[in-house]
Design a protein around this nucleic acid. Structure first.
Lengths: 230, 230
DNA sequence: CGTTTGTCTACTGTATACAGAATACAAAAC
DNA sequence: GTTTTGTATTCTGTATACAGTAGACAAACG
């Protein structure tokens, strides 16, 4: 009986899924820059797989919005205008605000206190060399935890999907001031969750996302002087 | 069947997309019932295509939540529990409420008056034989129009995706009383949109979706006496 | 009679082969 | 010199072939 469950746990993920993950990681890490062409034969050769599973993986990435198909020729890594980013954040705001609202009703004290102590720990080691990386990693966990605490798996998945998009254009440069502000916004969210106030949690999360959007946009206007027009 | 003419109609789109559309339609129309197995070779034979594009189409449908893959064997048309339906409506509520809120800011008077006159026309022809079909078709247009008026293409796409899910389990039986109530709820939404009150529009839409959920759930407990348990 | 094990079938996942479309480049015509 | 057209190359989209695996049924053993 416990053998079958074991077997299910160690099922190897399909080739398509692993290709999906690999290309996804290459995109969000910047290895495959925005706008770069995705030649299916050379990419397949690089990954040492055939084109069939690669095509399926690319199609999934296309549905995620990370890959764009021009006509029916030549897939490219998606490029995002400022308006695209606004749209993405607008949807993301709705999803994450909802997750906070729901989490305020469902979140367990254990998860809550874990998030809080992690936040506190981060606040106390502000000077560390690897502080920024830690803060970025925690930011990810923070949002995923709240999404999971919403109790709605589909909502969680959608949030995850939008987070991927955001990660692909938001390089998460470790500017300490920015991360610190995000951390403070997290505390407001935690407070609302701890006191079980759904609408306050929604608002705190919405404010947080809006603030992040502004930060990303301001950073974009500085860095993207020439947006790779030929 | 009119397979050859179907095949010709599919020409302009990519094969994968047309297979996607065809299977999608078969699912939401109930031709492929929930839980039915999707054998790739026989389905490919039926559609007169090869398995490769069919596989890609099925994978897309899987991402939409309309098809489920057990392990890595045998795709099935998704089955939805009452909890699944609640989750889906919860996300859908967030998306559609957001679209109404945004639409209150952006919707054009033309679109608004068109929606209102269509609603009025429907209200005045209550007795017609084909009233229910018309009402159902309009309901679809109503929500799509508001989603489009949100000015956020991604939000519109997500709403569309969730609408497909809903259509697949909500057979939209033409109970006039139900449709009439939905129509009244639409009027509340239109009023809020017309007077440019975003939060009122959000609330009216949220109430509408909640009301629809209750209706669907109550209908489900009646019809699904035996939910195809083995 | 029930349980186990072996074989057989059928289906899926992946690779490859092939055909048609798009692009680029060169040659010819104006 | 410029434009247009033809050809060649490359890449994508689709079909098919092949291999591995899950599931079913039957036979053998308890």
């Amino acid at each position: 009986m416990n053998v079958s469950s074991l077997k299910k746990n160690l099922r190897p993920l399909s080739l398509v899924d692993s290709i999906y993950q690999t290309v996804l990681e290459a995109i969000v890490s910047g290895q495959l820059p925005h706008g770069s062409e995705l030649n299916s034969v050379s990419l397949a050769k690089q990954l040492e797989v055939s084109r069939t599973p690669l095509r399926e993986a690319l199609r999934l990435l296309e549905r995620d919005g990370l890959v764009q198909q021009e006509g029916n020729h030549k897939a490219r890594v998606a490029e995002f205008s400022a308006d695209d980013i606004r749209e993405i954040y607008e949807v993301r705001l709705q999803l994450e605000a909802a997750s906070a609202e729901l989490a305020a009703k469902h979140i367990s004290p254990d998860v809550l206190s874990a998030l809080r102590s992690e936040t506190d720990a981060l606040n106390q080691h502000m000077g560390d060399v690897d502080w920024c990386e830690k803060a970025i990693a925690f930011d990810l966990r923070f949002h995923e935890a709240i999404a999971a605490a919403s109790g709605n798996k589909r909502l969680k998945d959608e949030i995850h999907r939008y987070r991927l998009l955001v990660r692909s254009f938001c390089v998460m440069t470790g500017r300490q001031a920015t991360l610190q502000q995000a951390l403070n916004e997290h505390i407001s969210i935690l407070d609302a969750l701890a006191t079980g106030r759904p609408s306050a949690a929604r608002k705190a999360m919405a404010d947080h996302i809006t603030s992040r959007l502004k930060e990303v946009l301001s950073r974009m206007t500085v860095t993207n002087k020439v947006p790779a027009s030929k």
